[in-house]
């Protein structure tokens, strides 16, 4: 049973075919890696899946029910609507709310589930206090998982790099997603941090019942935790398979290292 499907999506920028006929089926609970050389179109795929770009052709469908089959096309939806339907993401170049506290960063992600409106907020009704207490507690629970609970009052920009990446994942989880898209979560991390991150990703997948698609250049991470890998080159899928198959695939080796090696 698939949770999200990209059906032959393509996007053209001017004359440039950035991604051509990209197909992807994300099964429930799967952890899939998306790799490829620089400029292969990986982030463009992410941007299409999250509604930042809309594909020139093709369709993206999302299974909206947790158990059954209830597919809806998300191709016309805005990014915030896609997030509200259960697809959350992180960014390649961290995009935290830098001048806000760690706690507020997470609480903002709860916003679309908050039941009181602006007027109730201004008048400070009981609904306001109850909801605020609830989301603050939920946010703290999430921060605890990532070991950030002692830093909730710090500004996001003052966190060390590794923790900023973690906070971004925390924030994405706060939107209560079914599918989590991670864009180079280990970028800029040292081997030890990458190793911890690997464990963390497997842990949250089980704990939050997630389906994860990740872009990564760190092969130890990709080969270590991904069950399936999709390789992109020049906007086209050149290989799909298990980590072993991919590491032996001549087309992949050619794409990464060039011919005559």
């Amino acid at each position: 049973m698939s949770v999200m499907e990209a059906k032959s999506i393509s996007i053209v920028f001017g004359g440039l075919k950035a991604v051509t006929n990209f197909d992807l089926k994300l099964g429930k609970g799967e952890l899939v890696g998306l790799i490829g050389p620089n400029g292969a179109g990986k982030t463009t795929v992410f941007n299409m899946l999250t509604g930042v770009y809309s594909p020139t052709s093709g369709d993206i469908v999302l299974n909206t029910s947790r158990e059954g089959h209830n597919y809806k096309s998300i191709i016309k939806l805005k990014p915030y609507q896609i997030t509200q339907s259960g697809v959350a993401r992180t960014f390649q170049n961290i995009r935290l709310f830098k001048d806000l506290s760690v706690l507020d960063n997470v609480r903002i992600a709860f916003h679309f589930n908050v039941k009181y409106n602006a007027l109730q907020g201004i008048l400070r009704t009981t609904a306001f206090y109850n909801e605020e207490d609830e989301i603050t507690e939920k946010a703290r629970d999430l921060l605890k998982i990532f070991n950030l609970q002692d830093k909730e009052k710090e500004l996001a920009k003052n966190l060390p790099y590794g923790e900023q990446r973690k906070l971004e994942i925390t924030r994405a989880l706060a939107t209560n997603p079914k599918v989590l898209l991670l864009d180079e979560p280990a970028a800029g991390m040292n081997p030890q941090e990458t190793h911890d991150l690997m464990n963390l990703i497997s842990f949250i997948r089980n704990k939050f019942d997630l389906t994860i698609l990740l872009i990564e250049h760190d092969m130890s991470l990709v080969m270590g935790i991904c069950e399936r890998i999709v390789v992109l080159d020049y906007g086209q899928t050149i290989a799909v398979g298990t980590p072993e198959q991919i590491s032996k695939d001549p087309k992949v080796i050619k794409a990464y290292l060039g011919e005559g090696v």
Binding site: A88, L96, D104, I108, H111, A118, G121, T175
Partner: peptide, 30 residues
Amino acid sequence: IVNNLINSSPGRAIVSIREDEIAANSMGIN
């Protein structure tokens, strides 16, 4: 009015737009 608005969830949504519009959008904020 301004203080209570800013220190509520809609207020945080407003401030998140100042901080990073793209991120706010992908956090489900209209």
